[in-house]
Simulated scan of single mutants.
Amino acid sequence: MKIEIWSDVMCPFCYIGKRNFETALSQFADKDHIEVEWKSFQLDPDIPEVPNESYEQYLVKRKGLSLEQVQGMLANVTESAKQVGLEYNFDTSVMVNSRKAHQLIQFAKSKNLGDAAEERLFKAFFTEGKSIADIATLTQLGIEIGLDETEIQEAFTDDRYSHYATQDIQEARQIGVNGVPFFVVDRKYAISGAQPSVAFLETLEKSFAEWRTLNPENKLEIIEGQSCTTDGTCE
């Protein structure tokens, strides 16, 4: 059963939502039958690639709140992150455009490393204060999760990975995604926001029971005989 997750690596609730979803998935008996695909989403595609303001300054300008209100809001988010084992350092977060980060994620997905890319980029942005628009930084992060350096460089010049990100963003609009994280389960159910793990688990159990009804597991009664296996053993 497939679960698609629209996310932006600059979204603090996306990282928290990822942890809560992972907690639910670890408790789900049929987790081996779940396929997870990360989808690109940009909360603000107009942010420049070169940083020119802090996280606090950005929110003050965008939300029209006072500095004190923004600081209180970020303190609450930091505490929520701490509750699920995450460390947020908003004072060092580098506010830059996330487009190149999504190109890296799209390339990582082609190597079955989409989840690893999301995780590494979240930590780089929220904990380590790294620029997720800097190609040298992104290349190093990609190498850390097992991607080839030369292929990473090519991914930033190959239009298809940018195109894949655009496709995800357009698809999000088509299905009515206005904010992230946004989880789509078997194209039947949707979970919006960083819900508690129990909410994810309940939806997993409900949707998987329905999916299994339509996709029964075939268990064959096997009569053993002499045969050859893929490891070259014949007996």
Rank of each mutant, 00 (worst) to 15 (best):
N89T: 02
F107M: 13
D115W: 02
S98H: 05
E49D: 10
A101I: 09
E49V: 02
V96D: 10
G129M: 04
H33N: 12
P51T: 08
S110P: 12
V94K: 09
M95P: 05
F90C: 04
D115Q: 08
V96S: 04
E35N: 11
V96I: 04
G85D: 13
I105L: 15
E37K: 06
K123F: 13
N89A: 03
E49Q: 06
G72L: 08
P45D: 12
A117S: 14
E68Q: 10
P48V: 10
S98W: 04
E56Q: 02
P48F: 13
D32K: 01
G64C: 06
A108I: 06
E37D: 15
Q103R: 04
F107L: 14
F90K: 03
V77D: 01
E56D: 07
V60D: 11
E37G: 11
L104T: 15
E56W: 00
S93E: 15
S131E: 13
V77M: 14
S131P: 03
Q106E: 15
G129E: 11
V84D: 11
N89S: 04
R62N: 09
M95A: 05
G72E: 15
V50W: 10
G129W: 08
F28K: 05
L74I: 04
A75V: 07
D46Y: 10
G72M: 06
E68W: 03
P45L: 05
F107V: 07
E119A: 03
N112A: 11
L65A: 02
T127H: 05
L59A: 01
Q103S: 09
V84W: 09
S66M: 06
D115E: 14
N76P: 04
Y58S: 02
R99M: 06
S131W: 08
E49I: 03
N52Q: 06
V60Y: 01
L43C: 10
D44G: 03
M95G: 05
E56A: 01
L74N: 07
E49C: 02
D32T: 03
A29L: 12
S110K: 09
P51Y: 09
K130Y: 08
D30T: 01
Q71T: 06
R120N: 14
Q42P: 03
E119L: 05
V84E: 13
K111S: 14
K63F: 11
P51A: 10
V60A: 00
V94Y: 13
V77N: 10
K100P: 00
T78A: 08
L74E: 10
A116V: 08
E128V: 02
A108N: 15
M73A: 00
V50N: 13
F125E: 10
D91V: 00
V77H: 13
E119Y: 09
G85I: 03
S40N: 06
F122D: 00
E118A: 05
N52P: 02
F28Q: 09
K63I: 01
W38L: 09
G85Q: 05
V94A: 10
R99S: 10
A116C: 08
P45G: 06
T92Q: 08
Y88A: 01
L121M: 15
G129V: 03
G72I: 01
D91L: 01
P45K: 02
L74G: 01
I34A: 11
